[in-house]
Design a protein around this nucleic acid. Structure first.
Lengths: 201, 201
DNA sequence: CCACGTTACCAAAGAAAAAGCGAAAGTTCA
DNA sequence: TGAACTTTCGCTTTTTCTTTGGTAACGTGG
């Protein structure tokens, strides 16, 4: 995408701010006002330039029809599916809906990634609390100490820390009130590894 | 989805509010009344426009048949500046660079928002650990119990929980090993309120 | 230093879209 | 059937966008 001039950048930033705040785009005059431009032609020219450079889109002759193109708003985020809830000791409650949630690009690995919402405080000592979103990378193996989503005996899904101990596997909750699970490798199937956390207040 | 004009946005907002409150949509006349429009034709036109732009749906000639379509409020992400580090007890180390980081849109409020990286474990009991990113909304006031970025005596910046106690202010760390700070309101200047957390493993 | 392309501006006219008005006709449903 | 609504028609006013025709400042390759 082509580089912007200083003025163009300022105007683009203003557009974004305005749209964010009002839910609709500013008119040419409002833009002009903001920057002390007395001629609409000037504003018009700027918008045309921004459009040519691929930062915005406009419908011809439509009022307030400026739209920001994705480069501005969300290029560096990735839409990943929100699959459901995990809690210690209970199966994933799959959310049927096709919900997705935006996740910053640098929280997402290369592979298939999805998001689960945490239920309960089983990982409280790892600073993951009830209601947090964990970003999970779909993997069948993990290293010791990684946080994993594991399927136990084909029916129970939990969020735990993973340790391999001479042939067996220990799934360790990060909550002193809860007991670790020790199981044969054959009974444990990894669903994925936690690569990030997001929380909203 | 096509952009809205000012009026269209106002009307859409009203529709949403009305439906939320009453459980059914307003009649054309009620909409007109709300906006001081004496002609139903005007209202009708607006609704038609909203429908064409894909924000609502109507059944032909049915009373109060307006439905809001999943106003995909852009589950996108927003690029916000990464300002620096906060730690309990030491000034913000401002990062001079113009780094930014992508944050899911629903973690960002309307106002100016930025991101700080947490240093130290002063908020460990609130499940915020060293290295986490906190999303901060630029605000000068806070409610009791909110997590804030506060400037103490003009030089020291910390991340603490905020409590107002008869004229004074208590800044409470969420770590039993650390002491709360009690100060005159005059000496405490709020920089912002934490609205979200992100962590990367 | 100059020609040239780019960016940034201004003023004003012309044109389309958006927003409104009133009245009348048509539907739906209890 | 009548009350409660929605559609439509013809027209006016307001708001916004587009265009035309210039001026001025700046940087770059010649």
């Amino acid at each position: 995408m082509q580089p912007l001039t200083k003025r163009q950048r300022e105007i683009l930033d203003y557009l974004q701010e305005f749209i964010q705040q009002h839910g609709y785009a500013p008119s040419l005059e409002e833009v002009g006002q903001r920057f002390g431009l007395s001629s609409l032609a000037t504003v018009h020219k700027h918008l045309t330039n921004l459009q040519e450079k691929g930062f915005i889109r406009r419908s011809w002759n439509r009022s307030r029809s400026v739209e920001l193109l994705p480069a501005r708003v969300g290029q560096r985020a990735i839409e990943v599916p929100l699959m459901g809830y995990v809690a210690a000791g209970s199966p994933i409650e799959a959310i049927a809906s096709n919900e997705t949630i935006a996740v910053p690009e640098d929280l997402v690995g290369r592979r298939d990634t999805y998001v689960l919402r945490v239920k309960g405080d089983s990982m409280i000592d790892e600073q993951i609390r009830d209601g947090d979103f964990v970003i999970v990378e779909d993997r069948k193996t993990a290293d010791n100490g990684e946080m994993v989503i594991a399927l136990l005996g084909g029916h129970e899904v939990t969020l735990k820390k993973f340790y391999r101990e001479n042939g067996r596997i220990r799934l360790q909750p990060a909550n002193p009130a809860m007991q670790p699970i020790i199981a044969d490798a054959a009974n444990v199937q990894l669903q994925g590894v936690v690569v990030g956390v997001m929380r909203k207040y």
